[in-house]
Amino acid sequence: MRFLLAALALVLTLMYFTFGLRFGYVTLTPTYMLNATGEGHYGFSTFEEGQHVGVRGSCSVRRGNVTLRLLDPKGIQVAGQICPKGTWALNLLGSGPNGTYELIVEYRNFTGTLDITEARK
């Protein structure tokens, strides 16, 4: 039992220093992160021309920052926001041709909470 606890502690320590610890699923639940580094990609499909799609929510940053970019189906950025230290509201909406819009979330040593949900108009 002690060996398993030591192994678990070692694994969590390695995860913390490589890509961070993440608790939650970004587009469904509030996600708590410790030293998160890297990128996340999320797709939102539209079926009608001119339909608005994106995310709304908040980010609370204690350390590092998080950058959110919304790309249209052609790969052109239609919305973006950076969350530095502090608490911020998020509202990224884009419209244009139908297809899959991609949300790219880039973490840089991010410690805090990210709470976003899909928004359509």
Rank of each mutant, 00 (worst) to 15 (best):
K85D: 06
Y32E: 06
E39H: 14
K74T: 13
G50V: 10
S60K: 10
R69A: 14
T37D: 12
N35E: 10
P84K: 08
S45H: 13
T67A: 08
A119W: 08
G94W: 02
I82R: 10
L34F: 13
A89F: 12
G64T: 00
S45E: 15
T13F: 09
Y42W: 07
V66K: 00
G57Y: 01
L12P: 07
R69Y: 10
E49I: 12
A6F: 00
L34N: 09
P73I: 02
G50K: 14
S58H: 03
I76A: 05
R22Y: 10
S45R: 15
G86S: 01
I82H: 10
G57E: 01
F17T: 11
L10P: 06
R2C: 01
S45D: 14
V78I: 01
G99P: 04
N109M: 13
L4F: 05
G94V: 03
E118I: 13
V11N: 03
C83T: 04
G75M: 00
E102L: 15
L103W: 02
L70N: 00
Y107D: 07
F3N: 08
A36T: 10
L12R: 05
Y16G: 02
L28Q: 14
L8T: 11
L10M: 08
T113Y: 05
N35R: 15
L5C: 04
R63E: 10
T37F: 11
N65Y: 06
T13Y: 11
M1S: 02
G96L: 06
I82V: 15
E102C: 12
D115W: 07
T87G: 03
R2V: 02
S58D: 02
N109T: 15
V11A: 07
A9W: 00
P97G: 13
T67R: 11
H41N: 13
S45T: 14
M33F: 15
V61I: 04
H41V: 15
G54Y: 00
K85W: 02
A36E: 07
Q51C: 07
P84F: 06
F17E: 10
G54L: 02
I76R: 07
T113I: 14
L68F: 07
L14D: 01
E118N: 12
R2D: 03
A7W: 01
Y32C: 07
V61M: 01
N91V: 12
L21C: 06
T31N: 09
V11M: 05
Q77I: 07
L4H: 01
T13V: 09
G43S: 12
G43H: 08
V66Q: 02
T13S: 15
G112Q: 10
S58Q: 09
R62H: 12
E118W: 08
L90E: 01
F110L: 09
L93P: 12
G38H: 11
A6L: 06
G86N: 00
Y42K: 05
R63A: 09
L92P: 07
L71Y: 05
L21T: 03
Q81E: 03
P73E: 00
L114Y: 03
S58M: 07
A79I: 00
S60P: 05
I76N: 05
G54C: 04
Y42F: 13
G40L: 14
G54A: 02
L14M: 03
T111G: 10
R63K: 11
L8I: 11
V26Y: 08
V105I: 13
A89N: 15
F17L: 13
A119E: 13
G99E: 01
T29D: 11
G99I: 02
F3G: 07
G38M: 13
K74F: 06
G112M: 09
T18C: 09
